[in-house]
Every structure is written in C-alpha cells, then in structure tokens.
Design a protein around this nucleic acid. Sequence first.
DNA 1: CTGAAAGCGCTTACAG
DNA 2: CTGAAAGCGCTTACAG
Lengths: 340, 340
Amino acid sequence: MSNITLAILAEELQLSIATVSKALRDSHEISTATKKRVLKKAKDVNYQVNHFASSLRKKKSKTIAVVMPEIANNFFSLVINGVESVAQQKGYHVLIYLSHENFNREKAITAELQNGRVDGIMASLSMETTSTEHLEELQKKNMPLVLFDRVAENMAVPKVTTNDFESAFIAVKHLLENGCRRIAFLSVSNCLSINKNRLKGYKAALKANAVPFNSELLVQCTNDDAKNTGQLKKLLSRKKRPDGIFASVEKLAVPCYEVCNELNIRIPEDIKIISYSNLQLAALLAPSMTTIAQPAFDMGRESASILFKLIEKKGVSPIPENTVLKSTLIPRNSTVAIHK
Amino acid sequence: MSNITLAILAEELQLSIATVSKALRDSHEISTATKKRVLKKAKDVNYQVNHFASSLRKKKSKTIAVVMPEIANNFFSLVINGVESVAQQKGYHVLIYLSHENFNREKAITAELQNGRVDGIMASLSMETTSTEHLEELQKKNMPLVLFDRVAENMAVPKVTTNDFESAFIAVKHLLENGCRRIAFLSVSNCLSINKNRLKGYKAALKANAVPFNSELLVQCTNDDAKNTGQLKKLLSRKKRPDGIFASVEKLAVPCYEVCNELNIRIPEDIKIISYSNLQLAALLAPSMTTIAQPAFDMGRESASILFKLIEKKGVSPIPENTVLKSTLIPRNSTVAIHK
DNA sequence: CTGAAAGCGCTTACAG
DNA sequence: CTGAAAGCGCTTACAG
C-alpha cells in the first residue's frame, strides 16, 4: 500500500500541509479558489485520508463493534443488516466479533476493544454470560455501549429488546387454546434476562389458564446441536411426553421437527410446536411452523441509532432508555387444533 | 474514552517510554526483571495499546474487510463464520461491508478502503458488477485482494469458488434423469462468471442427454423479490410450462415453492425443483427440497487464509491460485421421479 | 487567507 | 540493558 499523503499533495500544489488539510475538509478559512484546486488534485491522484493518522489525532475512529453470539443465524444476520443500514448512512464502519456463545471469548473481545479502536459497542450476550464485569469495565472507560436482545438487565446502559414476557405469554396461550396441557419450554440459558422474561410469560400464561406448572417440562439446551437432539429425543420418548413445545430459539425448533419425524410423532396431531424464528421458510415447512418473529432488522437499526447518538452525545437522556420492540405471532399449521 | 498511554505507564514505572514499549512487546533488548515489572503494571492498570498510533507507525492495521452483496442469507453468513474462525485465531479484526447487490455502492466501498484502513480485502461481487476497474484500482495500490464465489474471472487475483460448471451439470443431469425435459434455469445475473459457468454446465448436461436448449427457459431474476415472484408466476402459468426448475440462488427457490402452491402445481409430480442452498431446513420443507450445498464456511475460511498469506507475503506464489471447492448434491423429494 | 508548529501515542534505529 | 529522538500522517490552535 504505497499511498499519497497530504505532504505529497501539498508539495505538488505548492501549498502548506495545513492549507491542503483545511481545504479538504472544506474549512471556511480557505479561499474558494484554493479549495477548488486542492479538491481537483486530490481527486486526480485519488487521495484518501489516512484513517489511522486522522483517528489518532481526532481520537475518533468512526467505527463501531458488534459483539454477538453467532452469525449463521437468521436473527443475527438480520440485525447486522439493520446496523449496516444506519452505519453506512452515517459514515461509520462496522467490525464484527463472534463470541460463539463462549463467555471467555466474549471477555477477550470486549477487553480488546478498550483501546479506542472503536467509538462504541453493540453487544448481545453469550448464553454462558452470568457476570457483567467485562461490560462494566467498558462503562468505566466511558465507552458508549448498547445492549440488544440478550441484555444484562442490571446494567445502566441503553437496551434494545423485544417484549419477551408478552410474546411468550401469547405463544403459550396460543398453545393452550389449541389444546396443549403439557408444554415444554426449550431454552438456551437461564442466566439471560431474555429467558427469564420468557419463562415468566410462560408461567403467567399457564396460571391464567389454571394449568399447573411442571418444572420437568423446562428443558435447558446448550450450544451443542448433537447434545440438544439427544435431549429432545429423551424428552419426546417419555411416557408422559409433552403435547406442546415452545422453543425460545429458532435452532431448537429444527431438531424438534427432526426428532418428531424420527419417532413418528405427528405435528400438530400429537404435539404442537411454536418457536421464535425469523425464517420466511417456516411457512414452507411440513407442516408450516407457527413462529414468533422478532423485528430483527429494526432491532439492529434501533440499537445502532442509539449508539450513534450516544457517541455523538446528541439528545441522549442521562437515564439510559430501554427500547422494547414488538414481536409478532404468526400462527401456522404446526399448532392448529385438529378437530376429529 | 480516557486512556492509559505508554507515557503514563513509563512515568509510574520510572522508565522511558521506549523501554516500556519494548518490554511490552517482549523485546530481547530488555531484562527479564524489567519486563516483569512492566507487564505487571500494565495488567494492573489495564493498559491497552492504542491501535491507531500503533497502526500508523507500523503501517499495518491487523484488519481485513469483507465486501459482499448481502448478509441476511445463509451462504454469506456462513462465509463470515469461516472468515471469523481464521481471523480470530490470527488476531485480525473483520470489517463488514454490504453492497446490497448495488454496483455503485460496491465502488464506493472499495474506494473508501484504499486509505490503509485495512490490510486486505475479501470480496464477492454484486449482481450488477460488470466492470472491474474499482478492483484494479486496489490492485494498483498493492492492496491484497481475494475474490470469492462471485468472482471476476479476468482478474489476476486469488479466487475461491466452487465447481460451478460441474455442480450445474450434475444438478441438471439429476433433473433429466428424473424425467424433466423443459428445465428452467433461474439466474440472478448473467454478468458474473459464476452464472456463466453454471449456464455452461446446464447446457452441457442438456447436450449430453440430447435435450434441445431453449432460451425461453432462461429466466434472469433481479434483486427485487416481488418482481421475481411476478416473473415466476408468468413462467409457471405458461401453456408449455417448465417441468423442472434449476435455481442458482437459494432465494429464488422459496418463491418457486410459493408460486407452485398458489397455482396448484404439484412438486414433484408436475414440476421438479432443485436449488443451490445451504439451509439445513431444506430437508423439512414440504416437499423436502433437493439442494446443491456449497461449502460456505470452508470458502470463508479458505479465502481468509489465502488473504492472510498474501498480507504476510508468506508462501504466496507469484501466479495467483484459483481454489475450487466442491459443492454437494443432496437429493430430496422435490425432484424424485413419480412412478405411476 | 495561508503557514509554521505542536502533538495525537506509538515503534524503532541508534547512541551510550 | 536503557533512553533520547525521529517520525508515522494527520488536525488544529495560533501567528501573521
């Protein structure tokens, strides 16, 4: 990367570096004629500001980091899409880091981001994350931080979530109304607030319908697909097996379908399934899957907007706001009541 | 972001900045005792090297950019996953840029990356891209560049692709063997080499089976989902409608299913469908979809590895290598022959 | 309106 | 083994 510097430009134009620099950033101190000359030359030789020098001097990087558990997942890639849409518009660059649901990895990532490489951070926590010291470290350094979806409720930072209690309540109510009485709640971690809220919604729906809560129907899954499938097989092989499944993550729904196929359990006749998912394809499954769609793109866009406000210290209330977006229940054939 | 600098560290340790800097990077010039002291202190106060100062000085950013058409797509998110796996291991940071299949956006992105912000670039071209001047600009500046999947064949840079001719040949052969005679090829752009190769494979398979080529069955799709659906509706409403569909992109297969449902065209009885796709879920569709799975994760990992070699100028042959990975045909129910 | 100079925080060739 | 000094390429307060 041999590059053109301000010094070279200044030399060729017979101007000082300062003048060229100011002309390039359209300073009012510089005459229009000079600006024109400089701009033309800069364009001709394809001059590009050295980002490191500029960032070092200005102490701003115009870069944000998005830290999340994974990316090969419709939800998170839609989030990135949303983030990119704002970032691009505001001239920010987006670094991506994946924790792979691993707490230590998440800690290592946030530790590395403290050196000013980024102006702000968006994070969605790993399923293993129970402590928030690594995030508080960022706060202490005044690093703008926004949490999304899988947030730490106790932290005083802006959070963007969906209405987890409500959507779980509605989903479980939907299952109950379609005749389910033994509804298994598949979750991915019981540490995260998102799951706590969904569990609360689940319990509240049961209570509202006078269905007793049964802790045996809470299944905690992991990041290991094979293990999860095994666990589900066990669950669905029980004598008193569930007649409804409420999956808190898209990736848990797929093995449910697979295990049901394998064990000849009919959906929705024998068991009804509903899952959080953003896949359009859910409509084409056999049977089509009832889903709760989270506004993933909007979450990304919203989180990024808040982060940029925070970075630019514009219109930010001293008390961090919680933004709660609404998920949508999309009823399909995996939960319809079968009238015999 | 109030930060600890080398100067502060040096002050507290009563050492020179140079010594502290060298100690931190484990220079052989520094005594073990001093190194220990410095390292301990650095850890205590959570010192982090300022990335911009360091990058400016060393002219290396330890950052790469991945430029691609979109991300809310299983293929590209799996690619990112692969990239991240190598980047993380090699201590590189990953910037993501989306062209949204827009040529001008792609040009703007690559133009912005010329200022040394990144040490290298991985790119997959937009469906609108027909000229490669913007990439040649990067080459001229000696920016390490690797193209993947949607590559510009004429450029002398390392390319990572899949065996598109072969996989198309096999897919079309599969359709022919299952009785199809009028096979529609849905493509996304005829500029990209990937499509040219797939088209060649398509034609070769027809020829090998003595089925005449019919240009009416080539359907060029766009980035506009609604438009594509309309086009497909027209195609499938024709009197002499196709009896087989070969979709070159995952996102074209889904509307095929939808339109078939709408028009009461049975899959696979009336029409057989095969598509490039990496979705596991394809197995759970109604009917399960025959796919050609591209090794997306491997492509990401491989491209990134080559890029890092290029950056570090280790073991790079003067002639850029073409890496061709193999896709896999996974036969499912959307293409099985129905024996009456 | 233009320019000289300081300094952002680091790394490294050189001196001692 | 340690340190003084130059310099990466930029921005900006200040002088003229």
